[in-house]
């Protein structure tokens, strides 16, 4: 700012003219920033409005109409926080559902990380006979729609006596997921081969190279896999619907689905349950966003 005022106080010689230019460019930069922030805030509001509506609905008492002629985007009149308590414990045991889902999610993440990182490492870094053919077969399995496998898989798990347990929802992740194996392999291939050579000369065997060198360097892609596994399993409705038969084993996605009935859907409770369901996803994203964005960029994956 001083530089702009300078010419007023002391008449500036013609060489100093560029000084006033600097102020103009700074003004332009500031107005550019204001515009950008304005746009981003507008976009945020657009995305967050439905959430605001959900909160408004969730805080309404049972008999208050949820669908008003003009949508209420923010809670103003009603503050029935007890709705959340009711959803978690009383009528709908969402606390129980959340614990159930967490068990499934955590087990799946562990399974995916162990199996897919091992297989991905083998495909990316080890030379063995038939590795190419095996990899192509793996890619082909990604093309088979899950719906086509639903019935045979169901029969298979029933034969094993796993119907009504969490096993059909957990064990498959320990046998690897084609998509994650593919992602991890692609990422591990970008790690310089010289590191393996250096490690071998240093006396490390393949297992030690995996554990001490490649795995620590693959945390971005492993984070991506873990978060995707979390999201898929947290939101998965069909899987638990097929394999789980008793109320105390239900997941949050099933609980939500059960809330919506043909008539008399308790919208305030449904919205409260929805918000509770979203919360873990938001928290997870909040904590891993830096790694996740880096990881998604580095594996060339958008979405």
């Amino acid at each position: 700012m001083k530089t702009i005022e300078a010419p007023e106080r002391t008449p500036a010689p013609p060489e100093l003219e560029p000084v006033s230019n600097a102020g103009r460019y700074r003004r332009r930069r500031i107005s550019h920033k204001v515009l950008m922030y304005g746009l981003l805030l507008g976009l945020c509001a657009f995305i967050l409005l439905p959430v605001g509506w959900m909160l408004t609905a969730a805080l309404k008492p049972d008999l208050e109409p949820v669908f008003t002629p003009t949508p209420e985007w923010f809670p103003t009149k009603f503050w029935e926080w007890s709705n959340f308590h009711r959803v978690l414990t009383e009528s709908m045991p969402f606390l129980r559902y959340s614990i159930n889902t967490t068990i499934i999610v955590v087990a799946n993440i562990i399974g995916v990380l162990i199996s897919c990182s091992l297989v991905g490492f083998a495909f990316a870094r080890l030379r063995f006979r038939g590795s190419k053919v095996l990899f192509y077969i793996l890619i082909v399995t990604m093309l088979i729609p899950w719906q086509a496998l639903m019935v045979p898989q169901f029969l298979f798990f029933v034969k094993l006596g796993w119907y009504g347990t969490y096993l059909p929802l957990i064990v498959p992740s320990f046998t690897g997921t084609a998509f994650f194996i593919f992602l991890i392999r692609q990422y591990m291939r970008t790690i310089p081969k010289d590191l393996d050579d250096a490690a071998r000369v240093d006396g490390l065997n393949s297992w030690q190279i995996f554990w001490r060198i490649i795995l620590p360097l693959s945390t971005p892609v492993l984070t991506v896999c873990a978060v995707f596994t979390f999201l898929w399993n947290w939101n998965n409705l069909l899987g638990p619907l097929i394999y789980l038969d008793s109320d105390e084993k239900f997941t949050v996605a099933m609980g939500l689905a059960n809330l919506v009935t043909v008539s008399d859907t308790p919208w305030n409770l449904t919205m409260a349950a929805n918000l509770i369901t979203i919360l873990p996803c938001v928290i997870v994203y909040f904590f891993v966003q830096k790694k996740l964005i880096g990881g998604i960029a580095s594996v060339g994956l958008k979405g």
Binding site: P192, D194, L195, D197, A198, A199, V201, L217
Partner: peptide, 13 residues
């Protein structure tokens, strides 16, 4: 034997 690589091959982590 110990080897020194062209791009050093230091373990980044």
């Amino acid at each position: 034997v110990a080897m020194v690589f062209q791009n050093y091959a230091l373990y980044p982590h």
